[in-house]
């Protein structure tokens, strides 16, 4: 008999009493948490909470109007001395960057296999979009895809992320249920909360363990929500 058959035989030999599904209890739990309603004012509060929390996780947050984020990005690129900025040319924000002629742009347009070393050694920063954010924990939701691959938010020492203030939800549970994650997950979905870190040496916090050392968030808002 195979290992699989043996394992299932042993598991099925045990008597298990059926238990009710926890679905309703989980929904009730998250509904009972203090949360903001869906009014416009509440949305602003959610975005503020997100910004505050992710700042506490050591991210640098810039709140900028949607129409002028590229200018802000140019400032960041200059201030950080970024010579090579990886971007996703097929995305809306990627097209905006190319149109604005940001200096040092490098497109992620080839499979990684041909330029792994270059990505690891010669790229200063990468800019990606996000699918939303979570107010409770100060977390960004990132779903890499064919246009904007997985390694952009991992390998370059600086990760710049665009978060639209209107996409901030109260909890992870809200994100998963409202966006119907289970109906179609990508090969890789990520929650990112701050730059890479470790406390493995004498419980001393250090940033930039293996992933980005810096996380810069451009939080995009309407013109008057500044």
């Amino acid at each position: 008999m195979s290992a699989r058959e043996n394992i299932f035989r042993k598991l099925r030999a045990a008597t298990t009493a059926p238990l009710p599904s926890p679905d309703a209890a989980i929904a009730a739990h998250y509904a009972s948490l203090p949360r903001t309603a869906q009014a416009d004012l509440a949305r602003v509060q959610l975005a503020k909470d997100f910004a505050e929390k992710i700042t506490a996780w050591h991210a640098e947050v810039h709140i900028v109007p949607r129409s002028t984020w590229v200018d802000k990005l140019k400032e960041v690129v200059a201030a950080k001395g970024i010579a090579s900025l990886l971007y996703a040319p097929a995305t809306t924000h990627g097209k905006a960057l190319a149109a604005a002629g940001v200096a040092g742009l490098k497109p992620y347009d080839q499979p990684i296999d041909g330029w792994k070393r270059e990505l690891f050694e010669n790229v200063d920063a990468a800019i990606t979009g996000t699918r939303g954010a979570i107010a409770e924990t100060g977390t960004m939701i990132v779903w890499p895809d064919a246009d904007e691959p997985r390694l952009m938010s991992l390998v370059p020492p600086i990760h710049i992320a665009l978060v639209d203030a209107d996409t901030v939800v109260p909890t992870l549970y809200d994100a998963i249920t409202q966006q119907k994650w289970s109906a179609g997950l990508p090969t890789n979905a990520l929650l990112i909360t701050g730059p890479s870190k470790t406390a493995d040496i004498q419980q001393t916090l250090a940033y930039g363990a293996h992933g980005p050392k810096e996380l810069i968030v451009l939080l995009l808002t309407g013109e008057d929500a500044q």
Binding site: P111, L151, T187, N188, I192
Partner: peptide, 24 residues
């Protein structure tokens, strides 16, 4: 575990690199 509200990364993997994807 460590008294953190959340970790830096929550990595949700649903399969290897698909045709057309550039990494993974």
């Amino acid at each position: 575990a460590t008294g953190q509200a959340i970790t830096t990364y929550f990595n949700v993997i649903t399969g290897p690199r698909k045709p057309g994807e550039k990494d993974g």
